[in-house]
């Protein structure tokens, strides 16, 4: 038997988690739509930026906001270099990006373990200690910030992709690089910029999650798996379906864990994926790019 207070608590928790999934997913969608690549090192890239901000704050005593900015910068740099040094040099056959970024995932994770150790570290608070509501339903500043970020990114992202010159350029560069070049779009520069910008989103998501959990070399793995599942369900070639899926699966999983026990969360998610595959198989089989996603 559960109370309405608990129901709201579980829903708000799921909403906050889903908001952060949406923030991270936006970066994945951006990179996929511009360069048709899946970056499996996305999670560790955010993890390293988070660790960098943690080190700057706790070891060097830098102010929180500054440490966070530098951490985001580290992630942006790694993401941009991934495109400049790796993805650009790959032969055009499909599948190389998957293999190479998986290798990068292993490398970055091992690097983090080497430099920062294998233990979890308690991250910056990022408003988790600021209560917003605290009677029967407990909401803190980080929850509110997460939802604000998620909604802002979802709506703002749609606006940018559909109502700005930048969005037009991104779509053209993705669809036909020669046409894009013929109208003055610097396709290669734009692609690297998209990779770099995706770093901002995974860094913000990773830091927010670290504030709610902790930071270690592996913490982003289950998070990014869930984000990729949302992208797969909604389709990385689309916008609103995957973004809404990000919110949806977090709420779904939150409720599944509450109703069926914490151990029910992962199986519940996979049951959902199987049901969707059975109901809408064409989504995942028709287009090569989405099948790969």
């Amino acid at each position: 038997m559960f109370s309405s207070a608990n129901a709201i608590q579980v829903t708000l928790g799921g909403l906050a988690t889903g908001s952060l999934y949406a923030v991270i997913l936006f970066g994945i969608i951006l990179v996929f739509q511009v360069s048709r690549s899946i970056n499996f090192a996305y999670g560790p890239t955010g993890m390293l930026g988070t660790f960098a901000s943690y080190a700057l704050y706790s070891e060097f005593g830098l102010p929180v906001w500054f440490a966070v900015l530098i951490g985001i910068g580290v992630t942006v740099l790694i993401a941009a270099l991934t495109d400049l040094l790796i993805i650009r040099r790959l032969p055009p056959q499909q599948g190389f990006d998957v293999v190479v970024t998986l290798g990068e995932l292993l490398f970055l994770t091992a690097l983090a373990q080497l430099v920062f150790g294998a233990s979890a570290q308690s991250y910056l608070k990022l408003l988790t200690d600021v209560p917003v509501l605290s009677r029967n339903i407990f909401v803190n500043g980080n929850d509110v910030l997460a939802v604000v970020l998620g909604v802002a990114v979802a709506i703002g992202g749609y606006f940018v992709l559909n109502s700005t010159s930048l969005g037009v350029s991104l779509r053209a560069a993705a669809a036909d690089p020669s046409v894009a070049q013929s109208v003055g779009i610097n396709v290669r520069g734009l692609r690297t910029a998209a990779w770099a910008v995706s770093g901002v989103f995974v860094a913000v998501g990773a830091m927010m999650f670290a504030a709610r959990l902790s930071v270690n070399a592996f913490y982003m793995t289950p998070i990014v798996i869930n984000v990729f599942i949302a992208g797969m369900i909604g389709g990385l070639d689309r916008y609103w379906p995957p973004m809404l899926s990000a919110f949806g699966i977090a709420l779904y999983q939150s409720w599944a864990m509450y109703l069926f026990g914490e151990a029910g969360g992962v199986p519940a998610l996979f049951i959902l994926v199987i049901v969707i595959l059975a109901a809408v198989p064409k989504r995942l089989l028709d287009e090569r790019h989405e099948a790969r996603a």
Binding site: Q9, G14, M257, Y258, E262, G265
Partner: peptide, 20 residues
């Protein structure tokens, strides 16, 4: 007794069950 699976990104549901 609440069985748990390592690696969950959201502990609010289990915490809520415990609080209940």
């Amino acid at each position: 007794y609440i069985p748990e699976v390592p690696g969950t990104p959201d502990f609010t549901p289990i915490a809520t069950q415990l609080r209940e």
